[in-house]
Write a protein that binds this DNA or RNA. Structure first.
Length: 456
RNA sequence: GGAGCGAUGGCCGAGUGGCUUAAGGCGCUCGCCUGCUAAGCGAGUUGGGGGUUGAAAGCUCCCUCCGGGGUUCGAAUCCCCGUCGCUCCGCCA
């Protein structure tokens, strides 16, 4: 949600920023401004009547008291009759105001966040890190260091010219470890059983990540994944992505598509003292997505499923620190990919693809050998004050000079590990000629096997 | 799933239709007093919206007793719906 006062003060700036997203936000903005104006016409009128009522209140009380003693109720009755009229007018005004305010709120909720001025018009590769090849197939130097390429360097790698075709994750895992067929039989397409060693790989991945994040000040959280509508409106998923969300109509609950929803809502309605910030969390939860209209053969296996587990970073910071925090979350995502030995690139996401709540978003895309391309593994968004304003999360600093009144803070989110997609990348990159898979050293202390035997 | 009880300021807690503009206490802040500390005395202490202003300060009005409706000239107080908490019964991984 955007700041009404700011919109009122400088509507053209907002209009220009929204125009970069494309779409018809300008009309919505005009409607918001018109409703706001109407609201501010009605308010003083109604408040004047209220003041009358308050003033008359004591007088009526005294007249009633006097009437009780003297037995003469005429004065009291006249005062009441007079107020009856005022009250009727106030009631009519109140009704109109309520309608206008409800209308204002739903209209305001339709406006997306203003994009960051640096958010590009097209997806832009910021940097590419690591050699997009496969250790186990010896298509890459044994101890390849981190290689950085300049922004926009879209180097083409000779993936075709190799002795052995890389296998994809389904071939490497085999139907006993990623069981799509039985998953489909149970729940439909895009559901899978994860079995055997892969379960320990997931748990190791999760615990390695949570431990790392704890060291960086992110408190581990397992949140509810069934939430009320408010949480989805508050985080900007509604009204916007309803076709993507599972609902339980009998209970008025929704299955979250990411723990971002639950983490952002954790402090809904709270006023936090500046000294408590930053608040950083790492949520671990399943995520549910309907993936309506996402049919496509390129998303075989675990890449795009209706249910997956994810470790999500979430930060509450003062608005002026949001950009630094965004860089920090991105750096953690890159650190994780690097330590897992995955080549990746960072993409600055185009304004028209930001989603309602983000002002800026970076995706980290890992190289998938079987597809010969980079695919999204993680993503981090700076949602500035957009979510906090909807959720009523504010920062206050009484100790500051001058004292800082309660105002919305900034929220940011970033994927630490999307388990399914990370497993895909780990399998494909660790594969050896015989079909076995070497897993990253760092996961072993957390219970991951050193090597996954070849699929039967 | 059934039955009952409850929700008041940072905290405790009074308040069953009208000077409640929410008593009283605790905590906190400031001041006075004071060898120091404690005690004592005095003042302050929810959040939000509108108007005025270039902005801030100030001034002013309104709202705010879990949330939303209703009754009434007037609601913390009465009625309805919802949320959350507690107790009992039933069920249960």
């Amino acid at each position: 949600m955007l700041d009404l006062k700011a919109l009122r003060r400088d509507p053209d700036a907002a209009r220009a920023a929204l125009a970069r997203r494309g779409g018809s936000d300008a009309e919505t903005l005009d409607r918001v401004l018109a409703l706001d104006e109407r609201r501010r016409e009605l308010l003083p009128e109604l408040e004047a009547l209220r003041a009358d009522q308050n003033a008359a209140n004591g007088a009526i009380a005294r007249a009633k008291k006097a009437a009780k003693e003297t037995g003469d109720t005429a004065a009291a009755d006249a005062a009441v009759a007079n107020m009856r009229e005022v009250s009727a007018r106030a009631k009519a005004l109140q009704e109109e105001l309520t309608t206008v305010e409800a209308d204002l709120q739903t209209t305001q909720h339709r406006l997306p966040n203003l994009p960051h001025p640096d958010a590009p018009l097209q997806d832009t590769v910021v940097r590419t890190v690591g050699e997009p090849a496969i250790d186990g197939l010896e298509l890459r130097p044994a101890a390849a260091g981190v290689i950085e390429y300049a922004s926009g360097d879209e180097r083409v790698f000779e993936v075709a010219a190799r002795a052995t075709e890389p296998k994809d994750h389904l071939q490497l895992a085999g139907p006993d470890r990623v069981d799509m067929e039985r998953g489909a039989r149970l729940s439909g397409s895009r559901f899978a059983y994860l079995r055997g060693e892969l379960v320990f790989l997931e748990l190791a991945l999760v615990q390695w990540t949570l431990s790392k994040l704890r060291g960086k000040g992110h408190e581990a959280v397992i949140p509810p994944v069934l939430v009320r509508e408010d949480a989805l409106y508050g985080t900007g998923f509604l009204p916007d992505t309803e076709q993507q969300i599972y609902t339980l109509p009998d209970d008025d609950l929704y299955l979250v598509g990411t723990s971002e929803v639950a983490l952002a809502s954790m402090h809904a309605g709270e006023i936090l003292d500046a000294s408590e910030l930053p608040l950083r969390y790492a949520g671990f939860s399943p995520c549910f997505r309907r993936e309506a209209g996402a049919a496509g053969a390129s998303d075989r296996g675990l890449f795009r499923v209706h249910q997956f587990d994810k470790v999500e970073m979430f930060s509450f910071v003062p608005p002026e620190d949001a950009e630094d925090e965004h860089a920090r979350l991105l750096a953690i995502e890159e650190e994780i990919l690097t330590e897992l030995g995955l080549p990746y690139r960072v993409v600055d996401i185009a304004v028209d693809d930001l989603g309602a709540s983000a002002a800026r978003k970076f995706d980290c895309e890992a190289w998938l050998p079987s597809q010969g391309t980079y695919r999204e593994l993680t993503s981090t968004s700076n949602t500035t004050e957009f979510q906090a304003r909807r959720l009523g999360i504010r920062i206050k600093d009484a100790a500051a000079t001058p004292p800082r009144k309660a105002e919305p803070l900034a929220t940011l989110n970033g994927t630490a590990v999307a388990v399914g997609r990370t497993i895909i990348a780990l399998l494909e990159h660790g594969q050896r000629e015989d079909g076995s898979v070497v897993l990253p050293e760092c996961l072993r202390p957390f219970g991951a096997p050193a090597v996954l035997p070849a699929a039967r």
